[in-house]
Simulated scan of single mutants.
Amino acid sequence: MIVAVTGGTGFIGRHLIKFHLDVGDEVRYLTRSTALPLDMRARPICGALSDKEILDKLVDGVDVLYHCAAELHDATKIHETNVIGTKNLLDAAAGKISRWVQLSSTGVYGSKPLHDVNENTPINPGNAYECSKAEADELVFEYASNGHFEAVILRPSNVYGIDMPNQSLFQLIKMVKKGLFFFIGKGNATVNYIHVNNVVHALALCATKPLPGKGCNIYIISDFMRLEDFISVIASAVSVPRPRFHFPEPLIRLIASFGRYFPKFPLRPSRVDALTYIHHYETQKIQSELGYQHQVSMEEGIQELARHAK
Rank of each mutant, 00 (worst) to 15 (best):
G215D: 15
T81A: 05
H148G: 00
G147Y: 05
S33W: 02
V296H: 01
D25F: 05
G107F: 06
P113D: 12
I54D: 05
C46I: 15
Y292A: 05
F224G: 02
T76V: 06
M298Y: 00
K96Q: 14
K186V: 10
N198G: 11
F141W: 11
E80T: 14
K285L: 14
R99H: 03
T121F: 05
R226E: 06
L21W: 08
A274T: 08
Q102E: 10
D63R: 15
A237Q: 03
Q284P: 00
H308K: 10
K285R: 14
I278L: 01
R226F: 08
D137P: 10
G301N: 09
V240Q: 06
A204F: 11
P44G: 02
H195A: 04
V238I: 07
A75K: 15
L90W: 07
V83D: 01
Q293V: 14
E249F: 11
G85A: 12
F230I: 09
K310C: 07
T34Q: 07
L38T: 10
G61T: 10
K174L: 03
I12H: 02
K186M: 10
R244T: 04
R41P: 01
V240K: 03
L21K: 05
E289N: 10
A189C: 13
R155C: 03
I12S: 09
V101K: 00
V27T: 10
V199I: 10
D163T: 15
Y193M: 02
N82T: 09
P37T: 12
V196N: 12
S105R: 14
N217M: 11
R260D: 09
T81D: 03
L21R: 08
L72F: 07
T76C: 04
A70V: 13
I220S: 04
H79S: 09
V3L: 04
A94Y: 08
F262R: 01
P266I: 07
R28A: 12
N217E: 09
K112P: 00
M40S: 06
S257R: 14
M164P: 02
L290K: 08
R155G: 01
V117W: 04
